[in-house]
């Protein structure tokens, strides 16, 4: 079984008006099946309200399924006594770095997680060091988190998760609030953790160019997985993605526009090198 497996997962919540009367039921997740293998880099796309974050919150047991379930390393998220173990295996990083950092000093912040797991003090410091090195923030270990840039703060948040030795990290729009450099830093850190440490990454994002190196891309709409494939396959479907309120990377878009003008260029171009090659071939 894969490291994360969702089976017929559904999540409903009740909408209430001002007085608390029931107005209706929203089915935020509607029968999702997916299986993620250990060591994969997975991207999840979808418009606002498509159910991406709700899905993510099931993977580390922040939400309880209405129907179906999610297994993390074979553990059922519905089992109350497994919750802590699941959260340690599947760590989560959110959009706003300022909401996730609690320590006065970077290294204290990173040590918070393992400390709560009851890890021995000496081991905590070892983990803090290796985690900060993994995200390239070791030299900032004595700094105050307040003085860091957004990208640096977000990398500290990621280090805080790594220090708990997770098998899988779920990043929910980690770059939405960052400048171009900060975005690059965070994506680079996520890729390195995946490639060097073999940590499974699940990246939720609205930036299409961040997912071109993913192993698989899932696209969500109305609580369902409506597309699944390699980035090349997914981004070949420009018009469909548009209808789902999504986009493609600029290079893919340019290739698509040139193709519409009658040029012989394949769909699903993901890098500028591919595009240059394709245009060169045109006689």
């Amino acid at each position: 079984m894969g490291i994360v497996k969702a089976v017929q997962l559904a999540f409903e919540y009740i909408r209430r008006d001002e007085e608390g009367n029931v107005e209706g039921i929203t089915r935020a997740i509607d029968g999702v099946n997916l299986e993620i293998e250990e060591g994969q880099f997975i991207a999840v796309l979808g418009h606002n309200g498509s159910g991406k974050s709700t899905l993510a919150k099931h993977i580390n047991a922040l939400l309880h399924p209405t129907e179906g379930t999610v297994y993390v390393e074979g553990m059922d998220v519905r089992e109350a006594d497994k919750v802590w173990e699941i959260r340690q295996r599947a760590g989560m990083v959110f959009q706003n770095p300022d909401n996730q950092i609690i320590g006065q000093v970077v290294e204290e912040d990173v040590g918070f997680g393992p400390e709560n797991l009851g890890v021995e003090t000496k081991t905590i410091w070892e983990r803090v060091e290796e985690s900060l090195r993994a995200v390239g923030m070791y030299e900032f270990r004595k700094h105050s988190p307040n003085k860091l840039s957004g990208g640096q703060k977000q990398r500290v948040s990621i280090a805080g998760v790594i220090a708990m030795h997770p098998k899988c990290i779920i990043l929910d729009e980690p770059t939405a609030m960052l400048d171009p450099n900060g975005r690059k830093e965070v994506i680079r850190a996520a890729k390195a953790l995946n490639q060097v440490e073999g940590i499974t990454i699940i990246l939720i994002t609205h930036y299409m160019e961040e997912v071109i190196h993913a192993d698989y891309v899932y696209v969500m709409d109305q609580g369902k997985v409506v597309m699944k494939g390699k980035p090349k396959e997914i981004f070949s479907r420009v018009e469909e993605l548009r209808k789902l309120r999504l986009d493609v990377p600029q290079v893919t878009q340019l290739a698509h526009e040139l193709r519409k003008e009658g040029l012989d260029i394949p769909e699903g171009i993901l890098t500028k090198e591919e595009l240059v090659e394709a245009v060169k071939k045109i006689k």
């Binding site: 418009h47 606002n48 939405a176 609030m177 609205h206 548009r242 999504l246």
Partner: peptide
């Protein structure tokens, strides 16, 4: 000030 932060591509 960053009116499109966190919005999906169509929303942007």
């Amino acid at each position: 000030d960053e009116p499109t932060a966190g919005l999906d591509p169509a929303g942007r």
